[in-house]
């Protein structure tokens, strides 16, 4: 199964980006083979609605789950509409996050865990 992890860099050793909508990259990992691809997040600097457009990108990538630090309500609504499972409060490297996921150590988020606009610098 393919999962998307928000990442600060382009490798499996990069740290998980705590922000969903404004994550620098999405690393899309195939949990069976550990093959991965990287999507640069064009919404990271968007004026608004970053969580929604990021959600759309992740849905289009074919991922079935998202691992991230924090996720706001707009992104959560988008991901849920796309049938994507959401795991928040994930930290460490991308590879570590995938490992935790595979071992069933992560619990699914029951809703957004931050307000909209979290992670904006202004």
């Amino acid at each position: 199964m393919k999962i998307a992890i928000t990442s600060t860099g382009k490798t499996l050793d990069s740290q998980v980006d705590p922000r969903f909508g404004r994550a620098a990259y999405f690393v899309i990992v195939d949990t069976e083979t550990m093959d991965f691809g990287v999507i640069e997040n064009e919404s990271a600097a968007a004026a608004g609605g970053a969580g929604i457009s990021s959600g759309k990108v992740v849905i289009d990538s074919g991922a079935q789950a998202v691992l991230t630090g924090n996720c706001g309500p707009n992104a959560e609504r988008t991901l849920t509409a796309g049938g994507i499972k959401l795991y928040t409060a994930v930290t460490g490297t991308v590879a570590e996050a995938v490992e935790l996921f595979k071992n069933g150590k992560l619990t699914e988020a029951s809703g957004p865990n931050v307000e909209p606009h979290f992670g904006m610098d202004t």
Partner: peptide, 18 residues
Amino acid sequence: QYSAIICIKENVLTFEQL
């Protein structure tokens, strides 16, 4: 331009506040 409406798998979501 504001991600206030988005089509996800034949379903259209609107975000009125945006």
